[in-house]
Design a protein around this nucleic acid. Structure first.
Lengths: 230, 230
DNA sequence: CACTGTAAATATACAGTGTTTATTTACAGT
DNA sequence: ACTGTAAATAAACACTGTATATTTACAGTG
C-alpha cells in the first residue's frame, strides 16, 4: 500500500502533528522532539510531515507561535480580571500569571525563551506578532501608568533613535504605546524572566529559598521602583 | 594500521579533545557539538574519545566546569581590582564583569546557563564546586555589606529551614557566608542574568534600547535597593 | 632479552536522526 | 471516463552517539 484510502487517513493532519509534538514535548521535553517519533505515533511516515511543514524548524516555529499565543491569552486574561483603573493590581496580576504559566507549562516556556532545539533560531519576522502581543499586556499597564503620570522613570536610560521603523512594526501587533513604556516593560520582563528561568531550569539551588516568596518580593520591588504614589 | 605509533599520537589527548570542542563551540555554537566532528579534526576515530570521557555528557560536564572556573576567575579578579573597603565599587565591578564575560564568550555563557545540548542535564554534584565558587565573588561582597550593617534586606523573604546540609556543602566551596547574603545574591544574580541572557540570545528586540545603558541602570537599581547609606 | 598484561586505539556495527528523491495512487475537476 | 495534482510511501543519504570485538604499542617482570 503506497497511499492509504481517505477513510483511514487522519483528518487535519497539520493540527494532529502539532498536537503530537506538544504531547511528546510535555512528556520528554523539547530537546527530544523528533519528526520520526511523531510520524511513528501517527502511523505515517516521516517524509509525510514535509507536506505540512517544510522542515523541522518550521514545525518548531509553529509550535512557538502557538505557545506565545496561549501565553499572551493568559497574560491578557489576568490583566482584564482586575478593574480597569486598578493599574497596580493589574501589574501584580500579570506578574503572578507570568510565573504561573511558566510553572504550568515549563516545556513551553523553555521552548519560547530558551534554546532547547539544537541549531534552531526563531525567525523574528514570523514570531513577532504573537510575541509582541504576549508582551502587550505588561506594556499596556506600564503605558497606563505613564499616561496618568504615575510611571517613575527617573534615571531610566533614554531610548536611542534610528529604530522607528521596527518599533512601528511592533506597535502594529502590540498596540500604540510610547517607547518608554516598552523599554521599562522590557526591564521588568527581564527581571521576572530571570527568576522564572532560574527556577524552571533548576538552576536555583534549593537552599531553603522559597521561589514563590522571592518572586513576590521581586514583583513588589518592581512596583516600588516604577510606580509613583502607591 | 590499527594503532598509530606513539610518535604520531597526540600528547595529552584529553586536553586536546576539550580544546577542539571549545573551538567548535566558538565557531558554530554548542548545539552542533559532535564527538565525531571532534574526532575528525583530531584525526582519530570517534570511539577513541570514550577512553577519556565515558560519554558525550561527561565531556559537556567537563567543559561546563572549565567554563565556570574561567568565569569565576574573572569575577574574583574584577572584585579584587577594587579596594578592599570599597564594597559598592566591588559590587559594580562584579556586575560589569558579569556582562563583559558573557559578551566575550556568549557560547560559554549559554553552555552554563542555557540548555543548548539536547537532553543534557548538568549533574549538580560535579558542577557545584566551580559553580559555587563563581558566585562567591558576589556573595562575598553582599556578606561584607551585611557585616558592616550596610545590607538593606528589609522585606526580604526569610529563608526556610531544612536545607542546612546542602548549604554547608555549598559553603565548602564558596566560603562561610550567611544564608541571607546568599539569598540576596541570588536575586541580584537573577536580575543580571535576566538582562544578559536576553541580550545574548537576541531576544531583546533592537528598538533603540541600549543594552549597556540598560544594564548600567539595573546595576544602579541593585545598589539603590540593597545598599544602605550610599 | 623474551614474555605477558594492560591500555589505547581501530574497525565494525547498530539504532537513531533530518532530509531528498523518485514513485505510486487516491481523489477532484473537466 | 480521463487527467492533473497533491499527498502519501519507499528507499536512500549523510549524519549522530554508542557498544562490541579486535588489534597492537608499550610497560613491567622473569
Amino acid at each position: 500500500m503506497v497511499r492509504p484510502s481517505k477513510k483511514t487517513q487522519i483528518p487535519n493532519l497539520q493540527e494532529a502533528i502539532k498536537e503530537t509534538a506538544w504531547r511528546q514535548i510535555a512528556e520528554t521535553g523539547a530537546a527530544t522532539l523528533s519528526l520520526r517519533a511523531i510520524a511513528r505515533e501517527l502511523n505515517i511516515t516521516a517524509p509525510a510531515i514535509y507536506n505540512y511543514f517544510p522542515d523541522r524548524d518550521a514545525l518548531v516555529t509553529a509550535l512557538i507561535i502557538d505557545a506565545y499565543t496561549s501565553f499572551g491569552d493568559y497574560q491578557i486574561a489576568s490583566r482584564d480580571a482586575k478593574a480597569e483603573d486598578d493599574l497596580v493590581g493589574q501589574l501584580q496580576a500579570i506578574g503572578f500569571a507570568y510565573r504561573q504559566w511558566a510553572l504550568d507549562f515549563p516545556q513551553r516556556y523553555e521552548l519560547i525563551f530558551g534554546t532547547p532545539i539544537p541549531g534552531y533560531q526563531a525567525p523574528m519576522m514570523e514570531v513577532l506578532p504573537s510575541a509582541a502581543r504576549s508582551l502587550s499586556a505588561l506594556v499596556s499597564v506600564v503605558e497606563g501608568l505613564r499616561v496618568v503620570n504615575r510611571l517613575n522613570s527617573r534615571g531610566f536610560p533614554s531610548v536611542q533613535p534610528g529604530y522607528e521603523e521596527q518599533f512601528e512594526t511592533w506597535k502594529t501587533y502590540a498596540g500604540d504605546y510610547d517607547i518608554l513604556s516598552l523599554a521599562v516593560s522590557m526591564l521588568i520582563w527581564s527581571r521576572v524572566h530571570g527568576l522564572v528561568s532560574l527556577e524552571i531550569s533548576g538552576n536555583m539551588p534549593p537552599f531553603g529559598v522559597d521561589g514563590a516568596a522571592l518572586y513576590q518580593y521581586e514583583i513588589r520591588s518592581n512596583i516600588d521602583q516604577f510606580v509613583k504614589g502607591i
